[in-house]
Design a protein around this nucleic acid. Structure first.
Lengths: 233, 233
DNA sequence: CCCAGACATATTTTCGAAAATCATACCGTT
DNA sequence: AACGGTATGATTTTCGAAAATATGTCTGGG
């Protein structure tokens, strides 16, 4: 693998800009960069080792995704969080994810079923390994994302999947924001199992209801345990 | 107004990049730049009078909106059109616009009613002035966009409004694509009037049904009259 | 004649300096 | 002391050259 020697910086994507976009998104979603924090070019330049222009391109892309707030002539900052935004993201997610769940259940073929089952399996394995603090574990995070992605992947609309992915990231930032203050993560394993079974058995109404509850419960917990971070000052 | 002398280029927004983004979006939506057309920097540089970097930032933003297709290391091109994409955009629009219509009807206050009525009024005036070919008239286009925007503006979700706006632009490109081949624009005036009345009288079910028909009929006409442009080669 | 490899050209991507803009502190006036 | 304007420093934004990458052409071997 000569690549890692030739292009050590580009873990993701071919261009540096795409790579920086990816890394910045990660940092913002995991709250490594705090909500509302100003993103000054000097600092970013040092942290990511890229030039003004390249960083600017990455920030512009993230601004379009809603993770970064662009203030013309006054730079960029991490998109702030708020109760209102959390409610909007949650509502939008329910609206879209419910629709995609129905479509996926209707259209899903064998490969879809296999993807749903196997991604849930991997998620469970990771949870078994360390049942204490899964929410912050990067591996759990990836597996969790992939399971939810797999559930709706067969919906047939790349357009809606892209929108869903953006909203998922924005919601995940809230989850991770509240993770530090949550006394104990609730039993998501059971919920995921139930959703998978409803989906595979093509029980659309049940799956949809479970998904909606899943999303709203998570959001409620964020509001409950990170409420002090959601209001101005 | 000394501004026009000081900053002759920046009609929209404060930064050149934002201005170029706006102008490029306009050109793409109106099909001044054809779907699939490669966007080479030399050409853009001459046409918009901005540097590589600034153009790159604009293209990145438009790529996130789905109007431009970014091929890493191989430049950008205007997002191609296809039957599949038209169907996806139409379905997504129906899903979201219907939901927003309901919310706006539920939440809309006096200002909302006034905005709906006045934007429709302006639209009608423009149609009366030139009842022949309104679809390509830039003024009609703006008024039409503002009427539909006003209808859902009271929904209470900036997040969903932003998504809606993106989808509206993508759909408008298809409308303008087919405008040249359409024998005669159908009577949209009546439809708009009916939608307005249903909305103002808070008849959500009717308004929603009219909106859905409005969107789908438009998309069907695009497929009908511009079908030859939607299939590969 | 067709294909693989190497060279040359075209195009994109990245960089850091330079210009433009904004924020802050300072100063003189009322 | 309060205010308005101005100079100064900090930060963003823009630019075109330079590096990196892709594309096209040509040549030689099969």
């Amino acid at each position: 693998m000569p690549d890692s020697a030739i292009r050590p910086r580009k873990e993701f994507g071919k261009t540096i800009a795409a790579d920086i976009t990816h890394r910045l998104r990660e940092e913002i979603v995991t709250c490594g960069l705090a909500p509302g924090e100003p993103l000054r070019f000097d600092v970013l330049r040092e942290r990511f080792g890229a030039s003004f222009t390249t960083l600017r391109e990455a920030l512009t892309a993230l601004a379009a995704e809603g993770l970064v707030d662009a203030q013309e002539q006054r730079g960029f900052r991490v998109a702030p969080v708020s109760r209102q935004d959390l409610v909007e993201v949650t509502d939008a997610r329910v609206l879209i994810e419910v629709e995609l769940m129905r479509r996926a259940i209707q259209k899903g073929d064998d490969d879809w079923e296999i993807a749903v089952i196997s991604t849930l399996h991997r998620l469970k394995r990771i949870e078994q390994r360390d049942p204490e603090h899964p929410l912050r574990d990067p591996e759990w995070k990836i597996a969790h994302r992939q399971f939810h992605q797999a559930l709706v992947s067969a919906c047939g609309s790349a357009t809606l999947l892209a929108i869903r992915a953006e909203l998922f990231d924005r919601a995940e930032r809230y989850r991770l924001l509240s993770a530090n203050f949550r006394p104990r993560p609730r039993d998501k394993a059971g919920e995921h199992q139930a959703i998978m079974q409803a989906a595979i058995s093509r029980n659309a109404d049940l799956a949809v209801q479970l998904i909606e509850t899943h999303i709203r419960t998570t959001a409620d917990n964020v509001a409950k345990y990170a409420g002090h971070l959601l209001d101005p000052e």
